[in-house]
Amino acid sequence: MLTKLSGSQLRQTLVQALSFSLVLTTAFMFWKGLSVITDSPSPIVVVLSGSMEPAFQRGDILFLWNRNPKVKVGDIVVYNVNGRDIPIVHRVVRNHVSPSKQLLLTKGDNNGLDDVELYSYKQYYLNREKEVIGAVKAYVPWAGYITILLSENVWAKYLLLATMGILAAFQRD
């Protein structure tokens, strides 16, 4: 393919490839920079369920902060549980603090029961240091619906890729 391209076409193709890689590396550096600033492996998350209604709706984007050593009862935290890939966003309803660690019990605002059933087997509290990704500090309503659309519908991913490909093809002419 590269042998059939003229010098200017080859140069244009290389410039486009470099521009694309610049966009990707910039996004990656931005994400990693936010991770360092917030001390969170995932500083931005999307609400995927209605368990925190009315505080947060499905599709809201949450901004996390993990620099505070302790969280209080009433704070909304995002945590991971062993064996589950998707982080959970719920409110702290009970707090046990010792000099060495903080244990938390969480519950979704729209749920009838606490989260003990969501935790790992025979686990009754979350370890703040090990399982909590961060506490919610800000949010943008509805802005995460595109992420939900792309993750729940394979056809949407292909439609987006096809549209980008068609736009790229028309841009070359």
Rank of each mutant, 00 (worst) to 15 (best):
V47S: 01
I133S: 03
W142P: 00
L103V: 02
G144V: 03
L64F: 03
K157S: 06
L113T: 15
G108T: 03
E117F: 13
V154Y: 01
G112M: 04
E129C: 03
A55Y: 05
Y158H: 10
G83A: 10
P69V: 06
G112K: 07
G50I: 01
N82S: 10
V45W: 00
V15S: 10
L64N: 05
K4Q: 14
L149P: 00
P99D: 11
S98K: 12
I76C: 00
I88C: 10
G165N: 02
L118E: 09
F28M: 07
F20E: 04
I166V: 15
P87N: 11
M1P: 08
L150I: 01
R172M: 07
L64W: 06
G144P: 07
V81F: 09
L48C: 01
V73Y: 09
T26S: 15
K72W: 05
F170W: 12
E152N: 03
L103R: 14
T147S: 04
P41Q: 09
V15G: 09
V132T: 08
G74V: 09
W155E: 08
T163Y: 04
Y145A: 00
S49A: 08
N68I: 05
L150E: 00
P99W: 10
G7W: 13
K130H: 11
R94H: 13
T106Y: 12
H90T: 00
T38V: 12
Y145G: 00
Y139A: 02
A27K: 01
A17F: 13
A27S: 09
S100E: 15
M52K: 01
R94Q: 13
K4W: 12
F30W: 12
Q102I: 02
Y121T: 15
G50P: 01
V23S: 09
T13W: 13
D173R: 15
N127E: 14
